[in-house]
Amino acid sequence: MCFMFIRYGFYGDVITESEKYRWMGPKRYDYAGTKVFLRHRSYEAEIAYLEVESGKTNTIPDRGRRFGRLQTSGSPNKSERVICLTNCNICNKKSSRPTPYSRPEETRWSRSKGRFLSISAAVISNRNERAPDGLVVDAHLSDGLLHLILIKDCPHALYLWHLTELARKGGNPLNFEFVEHHKTPAFTFTSSGNESVWNLDGEVFRAHQLSAQVFQGLISLFASGPEV
Rank of each mutant, 00 (worst) to 15 (best):
F5G: 12
R7K: 00
G12I: 02
D13V: 04
D13F: 05
V14G: 03
V14P: 01
I15H: 02
T16Y: 04
S18H: 02
Y21N: 02
R22L: 11
R28M: 01
R28Y: 02
Y29I: 07
D30K: 11
Y31C: 01
A32C: 01
R39L: 14
H40Q: 15
Y43S: 03
E46T: 12
I47R: 10
E51K: 00
G55N: 05
K56S: 04
T57F: 11
T57Q: 08
T59A: 08
P61R: 09
P61S: 01
D62V: 10
G64L: 03
R65M: 12
R65K: 15
R66L: 00
R69G: 07
L70P: 01
S73C: 10
K78D: 08
E80W: 12
E80G: 10
C84T: 02
L85S: 09
T86F: 06
N87S: 05
N89S: 12
I90F: 05
C91M: 05
N92M: 05
K94D: 04
S96D: 12
T99Y: 03
S102W: 08
E105D: 14
E106Q: 15
S110W: 01
R111I: 05
S112N: 06
S112Y: 00
R115F: 10
F116S: 14
L117I: 13
S118A: 14
S118C: 09
S118Y: 06
S118M: 03
I119A: 07
A121M: 02
A122G: 00
V123R: 12
V123E: 11
V123C: 14
S125C: 13
N126E: 15
N126D: 12
N126S: 11
N128C: 12
E129N: 05
D133V: 08
L145D: 02
H147G: 00
I149K: 00
D153T: 15
H156E: 03
Y159D: 06
L163F: 13
T164Q: 11
L166N: 03
A167R: 10
R168F: 03
N172A: 06
N172L: 09
N172I: 01
L174S: 03
F176L: 14
E180V: 00
T184D: 11
A186S: 13
T188K: 04
N194E: 07
E195T: 10
E195A: 06
V197C: 03
V197N: 00
G202C: 03
E203L: 09
E203M: 05
V204L: 04
V204M: 08
F205R: 10
F205A: 10
A207G: 06
H208D: 09
A212E: 11
Q213C: 13
V214A: 12
F215H: 15
G217V: 11
I219V: 02
F222R: 14
A223G: 04
A223I: 06
S224W: 15
E227I: 07
V228Y: 01
